[in-house]
Design a protein around this nucleic acid. Sequence first.
RNA 1: CGGGGCGUAGCGCAGUCUGGUAGCGCGCUUGGUUCGGGACCAAGAAGUCGGAGGUUCGAAUCCUCUCGCCCCGACCA
Length: 594
Amino acid sequence: MRLSAAFLPTLKESPADAQVVSHVLLARGGYIRQVAAGVYNFLPLGWRVVRKIEEIVRQEMDRAGAQEVLMPAAVPAKLWQESGRWEQYGPELLRFKDRKGAEFCIGPTHEEVIVEMVRRDTSSYRDLPLNLYQIQAKFRDEMRPRAGLMRGREFIMKDAYSFDVSDERALAAYDAMYAAYARIFRRCGLDFRAVEADTGAIGGSRSHEFQVLAESGEDAIVACDRCTYAANVEQAEVAAPTAPGIVPGAAGHAATTERAQVATPGKKSIEDVAAFLGVPQTQLIKALVYMADGKPVLALVRGDRGLNEVALKKALGAKHVYLARDVEVVDAIGVAPGFVGPVGPLRGEVAVWADAELRGARGAVCGANAADAHLVGVDVERDLPGVRFAPLRFAEPGDRCPRCGEGTYRGFKGIEVGHVFFLGTKYSAPMQCDFVDEQGATKPMVMGCYGIGITRVAAAAIEQNHDAGGICWPISIAPYEVEIVALQAGDVAVMAAAQALYDGLRARGVEVLFDDRDERPGAKFKDADLIGVPLRVAVGARSLKDGKLELKARRDAQPTLIAVDGAVELLAARVAEEHQKLRDAADAPWGSPS
RNA sequence: CGGGGCGUAGCGCAGUCUGGUAGCGCGCUUGGUUCGGGACCAAGAAGUCGGAGGUUCGAAUCCUCUCGCCCCGACCA
C-alpha cells in the first residue's frame, strides 16, 4: 500500500478520552475511531490487524478439528426463553422488537443458537463429536465500557462449542481447545498464562482463562514460579498455614497475651487502630460481617489480608454473599463497623468463620463489640470456642504454592483474552439437545464452550508491545510486515530504488507499506514508529549513493546498512524468519490443563 | 446504578465565575524558503459554542430540561 493513497489518518495528539496505552496508540496510529461508547470503526489498518488475528485463530481451530459456521447476530427471544436466560440475563443483553413486535436480542454469546442448530440435525452418537465455531461481532451492553478495545460493548469474538457423547470425551475436547488456545496466543507473540478460573454458577468441573500479562490488566492473578500452577486470585488456592498467622509481638499491646479492653476512640480502620496502639497491622484480626443467603456471618482474616468472597462462599456453601450494609451490621452484631469483633456478646445467632491462618493465633487485637474500644491479647483458641476455620483470604504474591509446595506465588495483572469452559449439560439438557447412544438410550450431549476476544487480543498485544514512540507489533499480527520509507520524495534515484524494492517485495508476497509521501523524513519516521510495522527500510540519498539501504527492526535502537543488491531476498528471508520464530514457539511443548 | 468531570473548527484546548462582534496550538488550502527524527515565513478556509426551552435590548457565558462522552466504584462473564 502506498501511504500517499492510504486512508491512514495519524494523530499527533491523543484523543482526550483515551486513557490506556492501547487505546491511545490505536487512535493515534489511525487504526480505530470511536463511534459511540464502547463502539468503534476499524479503519483499514485496524481491520488488517483483526483479520490477521482471525486467520491465526481459524488455522488453529481448523487444525484442532473444529468447523467454522456463522450464526445470526439478531437472535429471537424464544431461544433464550428455552434456556431460561431471557429472564436471568440483565440489562447487559441488548433487546429489541421487530416490526411485528416479536422480541429479539443481539447475541452476546451463542449457546442457545448453536444448541438449536445442532439438535435439529444431530440425533445419533455416530454424528458426534462436533466442534463448531464462528467469528462474529458480539454486543454486550456493559454498564461501563472502557479502555478502548479492551472493554467495548461491541467486539469481535471467536466462540466455539463442542458436543460429545460423554464427560470423558467432552473433557478431551476441552483439552484439545486448551492446547489450540496456547498455540494461538503463542503465534500472536503474547506473554500469557492459562489460569484456573471460577466455574461459578455454571458449576462445571473445569474452566481456564487465558490471561495476557500486562500492567493495565483488570484481573489479578498469581502464578507459581516453580510449577505451572496459575490462577485468578479469587480462585487461587492458599496453602495450609504451617504456623499461626499472629503470635505475640515484642512490646506494648503486641506483647500482651492477657485479654484486656482498651479505648480506641474513633479508630475504625485497621490502619488507624494499628497506628494508635503501636502494633503492626499483622497483629490485628479484621472482622467483616457478610450476609450469606440472608443470614449474617462474621468472617475473620488477619488485618493486612483481603477477604476473598469466592472462598467465603465456598466455605459456607452459600449461593449469594455480600458485605453487610451498616444497618445490617448493627442489627446483627449490635455495634457499628469499626469495632466489630468475634469475642461475645454478639446480638444474634451469628456464625463465626476464621481464616485458616488464624488457628492458634495469640496476642491478637480485634474489635471489642463496644463503641470506641478494641481488645488486645486475644487468643483465638481460648477466646473463640465456637469458631470454624476455612481458607478465606486472597492468595498473595510471596505465598507458598499449594500445588508443588516448593515455589512461591508471583503476582500479575492480566487481560483475559480467552476462556475455555466445560459446560456439561447445562444447555443441552433443558433445550433437549439429545442423542441416541449405542444402546439406544437417549442422552443429552455434553458440551464445552470456548471464547477468544479477537479485538481484545489486538489491544492486549499493544499493551504488551509498545514503547514511547508507538506500537511494536509481533509480525504475525502486524498490519504490514515491512514499511519502506522514501526519505526524499523529490529525489529521482531514491524514489526509483524505493519503488523497485516495493515491487520486488510485493512480487514475493511480502506485505509492504510504502511511505511515498512528500513529507520530511522526521515526520515519516515518527509515523512509522507510531504505526509499528516490525521491519522498516529507509531509502535515503545519503546511503543510497553507496548502494546501501537502512534496515531497522521496530524494536531495535539502531539501523543496519544493507546492500541494495539482494535487498529484496534479504528482507523476504528476514520476514520469513520472524514468522518462523513464532511458529516454533507455538510448536514448543507447553503445559496441559490438569 | 452511585459519585465525579467534560461537551466551543478534524484533533488538543482557552474563553463561562463577572452576559456585549468566538479565540489559540496542531492539522487543512495556496505561495515561498527548507529537507535524515513531527521545519519556517506569509496569506487563507473552516465553528447552528451538544440539543430544546426560558431570562435579557443582547446568551458560549445566567436558569430549566435533555442528549452524549470520560473517569472512580459497585455489577457481570
